[in-house]
Design a binder for these strands. Structure first.
Lengths: 206, 206
DNA sequence: TAGATTGTTAATCGATTAACAATC
DNA sequence: TAGATTGTTAATCGATTAACAATC
């Protein structure tokens, strides 16, 4: 059980559980069943129980899950029981928007450095952060122990930015540019592809 | 074959194919094999052939696929051989960023109206669009035959905006707010959830 | 105790991949 | 013709769901 490989589908659901559990805690709900979770999140209760059971026995038979305890556990599983420093490259509107989520994400992932190639952007402020030039990337990643990189630059330069992230020693990348970028296999990469999302939506129109 | 149900996984890959094919066309590449596509997109060639075969026989044995022809076909399958008018609610940084994609998406989905509840935002310009008040939503959706809605408002009001979209007669929604919203079953909804994406990324850190 | 709900096994369902005849 | 590559079937793999004993 210790060394079981967890599927990507499971890992993608955990943050969804976590978010709703946080809402429940804010409403001072003490306990929740897989049934209630499933109802709210449009998921099968058996699936939720199975997902959680990969990591331990977090529930109580006949009762359900303690909200606070389950939050703790999922945060730990996702390694979100620590602040993970994040760098963002591309100080446009999208980069700006993402920086605003720092408050929302406060005790977990935190954007601690913003970069841009354009002299117009360098030196400007985004929230409390000063936009840095690209040649400070490697140095900053090291100093601040940044582990994750976010790419919000145009597609044409996304691969180049990814290469610089990899060079600098980042462990994972979230790419918003609408293009598939290549990274070495030890780097985790997720695609946040708004245009593909919209295009696949069109298929379902009548 | 006419009435076969296509899985969501297949539909999500089509825009990825389309995008790379467009790149190939720009480089004046005439023909591409499933092998080459797979290599570039990190997909199994058999999967690509199977995906395409759900919709017809688009390739030539021994040769591969004609780039221009396949683009035509996928655009048609995704209903992107027409301009689909889109409304966006939430004229913040994120909304602003998405409006900038209009150029990129030019002959397909097009944001034709932007709304916001805040008096500070109403009347301001985003690209060529004037930000409208929420009470113009229904009217505008009807007049412009808008079929898709994008939500870029805070989580707390996302459900309310979705309800208004549904009321106005929209067919599909792309929600950027980090919360699960509920819509009637005839409405297609996709989640563009940046925070969940980041959180699941953390799991894969060492 | 009776009712509720978990954790887990077994059954089902669906998606991916391998293999290959057809054919350009 | 020989080499390449499709379209498609069969095999494999994996994920979801149903069912239920255990137990709070």
């Amino acid at each position: 059980m210790k060394e079981m490989k967890i599927s990507e589908a499971v890992v993608r659901r955990l943050p969804i559980y976590l978010r709703y559990l946080n809402e429940l805690r804010m409403s001072e709900v003490q306990t929740v069943s897989s049934q209630e979770l499933g109802q709210r999140l449009n998921l099968n209760p058996a699936q939720i129980r199975k997902d959680l059971a990969y990591f331990g026995e977090f529930g109580k038979k006949g009762i359900g899950y303690d909200v606070g305890y389950l939050i703790e556990k999922i945060r730990h599983i996702l390694k979100l029981d620590q602040v993970i420093p994040v760098a963002l490259v591309g100080a446009g509107n999208l980069g700006h928007a993402l920086c605003n989520y720092n408050t929302y994400l406060k005790n977990t992932m935190k954007i601690t450095a913003v970069f841009d190639a354009s002299p117009n952007k360098i030196g400007t402020q985004i929230n409390q952060l000063t936009v840095l030039p690209m040649d400070k990337l490697s140095e900053t990643v090291n100093e601040q122990k940044i582990r994750v990189g976010i790419i919000t630059v145009p597609s044409a330069v996304a691969q180049h930015v990814a290469d610089q992230f990899v060079q600098a020693g980042i462990e994972a990348i979230l790419n918003f540019a609408p293009t598939i970028i290549k990274v070495p296999s030890h780097i985790r990469i997720h695609q946040a592809d708004f245009t593909a999302e919209l295009h696949s939506l069109a298929y379902y129109l009548d």
